[in-house]
């Protein structure tokens, strides 16, 4: 990945130097060995701090919203899954495609931080990462560590659909093979839950939603969540809350409603970047919730993963006369 890092820094520096963009949104090394952090490079000097490691999990497309109403020309670095977020924002007309230079990175998968920290001292300094196809080699000041991808990647990466960005102005670094396991059913998790007894399914979600803290990290990290004001944040009587729609109260029933409302809000628009599940501080398997709709929509309406195609219209905002229907 060394080559890609160098090219990334060079391209970013070039864009900033030529003043084609004011800011390159990328990642830099985080506060421990297995962490990367969103980074906003605004100078050639800062461009040298950009990095690309198997810990760059954050989907940076969301940060475009920081600039949705100004005219700052920006560049943003995306992995394959994140790149669908660019299409999401463009389709939702939250960002003009021409205003952003998309730097695409072919991605060999993201490592599971927890699994890495079980082996590597968090205080170690990450020096170099080598993508050897089926494994990653991490070189640190405290030694070298190899991680078999099949064992150590995030589960979403083993189900990867686009490891090459679906949209980009500049592809950076060499092509790498997809980390997706061969013959993997992308919706295995959903299918597994579907086969369970309804009562089991019911208690499964009850348990998870009861734990929800309503910290809204899932919403705030989501590129499909781009309303100006959220219906869950209406303290003013007169909106939904005025009519006692959804209370601020943290309560299993209310939490349930929160997740279902959000779910419908992103139904047909969720790009499956998996960020919601990653950020959840209480391990709610949100991805399995959103992917249920994705799976059904794929089966019923042949919907592609949203964000794949810049021209698509969100599933729930369109129809075809030959759509299947169940009601009489």
């Amino acid at each position: 990945m060394k080559q890609a890092v160098e090219e990334l820094r060079r391209q970013a520096a070039g864009l900033l130097k030529e003043e084609r963009v004011k800011c390159v949104i990328g990642w830099t090394q985080g506060t421990d060995v297995a962490r990367a952090v969103p980074f906003f490079a605004t100078s050639v000097r800062q461009a040298a701090r950009l990095t690309w490691t198997p810990f760059c999990v954050n989907n940076l497309s969301k940060y475009l919203l920081n600039h949705r109403y100004d005219n700052t020309p920006l560049a943003v670095v995306v992995k394959g899954c994140d790149s669908r977020g660019i299409n999401r924002l463009v389709q939702d007309r939250q960002f003009v495609r021409e205003r952003v230079v998309v730097l695409g990175l072919p991605c060999g998968g993201m490592l599971d931080r927890e699994k890495v920290l079980r082996v590597v001292d968090p205080g170690a300094a990450l020096q170099e990462v080598e993508d050897r196809g089926s494994e990653y080699m991490l070189r640190t000041d405290k030694g070298e560590y190899g991680f078999e991808k099949r064992e150590a990647l995030l589960s979403k990466c083993l189900e990867c659909e686009h490891n090459i960005p679906v949209v980009s102005d500049l592809m950076i670094g060499p092509q790498v093979p997809s980390p997706a396991g061969s013959g993997i059913d992308r919706f295995a998790g959903v299918r597994e839950l579907e086969t369970r007894d309804p009562a089991v399914r019911s208690t499964f979600w009850d348990r998870h939603f009861a734990r929800c803290l309503r910290c809204y990290a899932c919403r705030n990290v989501c590129p499909a969540c781009n309303c100006k004001e959220c219906s869950f944040e209406q303290a003013v009587p007169g909106w939904q809350q005025g009519a006692c729609w959804l209370s601020k109260r943290n309560h299993p029933g209310q939490n349930y409603l929160f997740h279902l409302i959000r779910m419908f809000h992103v139904a047909g628009r969720c790009i499956d970047c998996g960020e919601c599940a990653r950020v959840c501080p209480v391990n709610i398997p949100l991805r399995e919730l959103y992917r249920k709709v994705m799976k059904d929509a794929e089966e019923l309406f042949a919907m592609k993963t949203p964000g794949t195609d810049p021209e698509e219209v969100p599933l729930l905002s369109t129809y075809r006369t030959d759509d299947p229907e169940e009601f009489s």
């Binding site: 939702d92 007309r93 939250q94 781009n226 309303c227 100006k228 004001e229 969100p314 905002s317």
Partner: peptide
């Protein structure tokens, strides 16, 4: 203030 300008309402 709330409108995000997605214009999905227009074709509807």
């Amino acid at each position: 203030a709330l409108c995000t300008g997605c214009f999905l309402c227009v074709p509807v």
